Computed example of a mutant assay.
Amino acid sequence: MSEPHGAVGAAGSATAAAAPGAGTDLNAAVRGKIARAVILSSGAILLMLALVIGYAARTAYFGAKDLATATDLIEKFVFALLPMIGTWVGTVLAFYFTNDSFQTASNQARLTFAETRDARLRQIPVQRAMMPVSSVRGIAADDAGWQGVNFKTGVLDFLASEKIGRLPVFSSSRDRLYGIVHDSVVKDFALRHGVRPTSADAAASAATLAEFLEDGEVSPRFRNSVGFVGPDATLADVKKAMDEVTARGYPCRDVFVTDTGTPNGRPIGMITNVDLEKWSSYG
């Protein structure tokens, strides 16, 4: 005897309603098992890493009899591993607590990385990381003499021959920095004025350093895209100086260390965004 259509419909609806719940419970159980396994294995890995770091530091100390060497080794291990661990834990938490918490977990992982990076930068003095100003390749000429420096040979060809991407301009005695420009700004000016770096034609070299640095597109970047810190600063101060200059409207990728920490001070050294990234990553 066949069942009434109403009974069949009710049973089908009940089965359909139960299926999603059962699937959700199964997914939650699977996530829980995977999360527990990953967390336990992460704990084991952390323990092994702690033992390895401790052994390496002990070997360094007894080998060199230098506590500073051992301490520096531990710092490098810790600051290299913490961002990785924070990201790993954030990913596990995102998986465990379902997609609704993924953004929160990701934000926490990024925050952990940022805090670790800033902590590392606060421990590194600028004088340890900077390039001495005597080694910085650039132009040394007082502004009164800029008319006598040819743009093509003194700027465009100079960057190409030295294989550098940024050009600081110092006073003739290098006791003051006037500003800095990057190769993209130089090439843009060359393009606008028909100066070709491969051309040997003297007629293409009429532009001067003064004309270049006083150009409406170049001058604001030249004078306003560099930061300054004092000799007692840390790389955290360098990062802050870069951020402050960038916030004023021009991307800052260079910071100079001066004896007064101001633009009018005597330059001591230079730190670029590339240096900052290198030291924040592994020192």
Rank of each mutant, 00 (worst) to 15 (best):
H5V: 15
G6N: 15
G9H: 15
G9Q: 15
A10D: 12
A16D: 05
A17E: 07
L26H: 12
N27H: 14
A29Q: 08
R31W: 03
G32Q: 09
L40H: 07
L40F: 10
S41I: 00
S42R: 04
G43N: 07
L47H: 09
L47G: 05
A60N: 08
A64Q: 12
K65D: 14
D66E: 07
L67A: 12
L73T: 06
K76Y: 11
T91P: 02
Y96V: 06
F97R: 13
Q108P: 10
R110A: 14
R110N: 15
L111H: 14
T112A: 11
T112E: 10
R117W: 11
R122D: 15
M130C: 02
V149E: 08
N150R: 14
K152Y: 05
G154D: 11
L156R: 07
F158T: 08
A160Q: 09
S161E: 03
E162T: 12
G165T: 13
S172T: 03
R174M: 02
V181P: 00
V181E: 09
D183L: 10
V186C: 01
V186E: 05
K187N: 10
V195S: 01
R196W: 14
A200M: 15
T208F: 03
L213S: 02
D215A: 05
G216S: 07
E217L: 04
S219A: 09
A233H: 03
T234S: 12
D237Q: 02
K239I: 14
K240G: 09
E244A: 14
R248A: 07
G249R: 10
G249A: 04
G249T: 00
C252R: 02
R253Q: 11
D254P: 10
P263D: 06
I268L: 13
I271T: 01
V274F: 08
E277M: 11
E277N: 09
E277G: 10
W279F: 01
